[in-house]
Simulated assay, not measured.
Amino acid sequence: MATEQLRARSLKPGQIIQAEVFKLRSQGFNRLAHRIGGLVAENVEAFAGMDSHKALKRLQIESGVACDEVGISVPGFGMCIQKLPRSFGFESMDEAEYRESVKGICRYVASRYWPSVSPEQVEEMAESWVDE
């Protein structure tokens, strides 16, 4: 991952750079959020045709999990609140916040789309689901 990021920025050996150091979370657990998005995209009609990333962002907006709210002025309507989904990237949130966000999305999916399934079962399905 770090090598890819360095290549993407066209950095070469010997160049002076400034970097922020942070501990990476487990790659397997990092993919869990997008697996939830993929699971929903494949199994919930309202998400048909979406890739896992778009489905995840929609779940964030619908649930309010890991979102920032911004007030915007809309001519003819007045002030409106817009939810902006935050990145699940390593640099955007720490491990504890990431885990709580994933659990929040699982709770939302279970209550809104699969009421006969527990949030833990949603997480288990996502962990075993493979996006092909």
Rank of each mutant, 00 (worst) to 15 (best):
K57A: 07
L11Y: 15
I16S: 15
S87Q: 08
F90T: 11
F29N: 14
E127S: 10
L24V: 10
T3E: 13
A66L: 08
K83G: 04
I81V: 12
C67N: 01
K103M: 10
E45F: 05
C67K: 02
G76M: 07
R112Y: 07
Q60L: 04
S87T: 11
Q5N: 11
D68T: 12
E42I: 00
G78H: 10
I72D: 11
S26W: 02
S118N: 01
K12W: 11
F47A: 00
G76W: 10
A48G: 08
R99G: 05
R58E: 15
Q15M: 15
K83I: 00
A33M: 07
P115K: 03
Y108G: 01
H34I: 00
A41F: 06
R86C: 09
E97R: 12
S26K: 11
R35G: 07
E97Y: 10
E100T: 13
E62L: 15
V40C: 02
G71P: 12
H53I: 03
K57F: 09
A33E: 09
Q82S: 06
A126N: 08
V40K: 02
E120T: 05
I16M: 15
E100Q: 14
V21S: 11
T3P: 00
Q15F: 04
K57Y: 14
G14A: 04
S10A: 05
L59F: 10
F29L: 13
M79T: 15
V109Q: 01
E69F: 01
P75I: 00
E45C: 00
P13Y: 05
G49F: 03
L32H: 10
D51Y: 04
R107A: 10
S26G: 13
C67V: 06
Q60G: 04
A96H: 13
E20W: 07
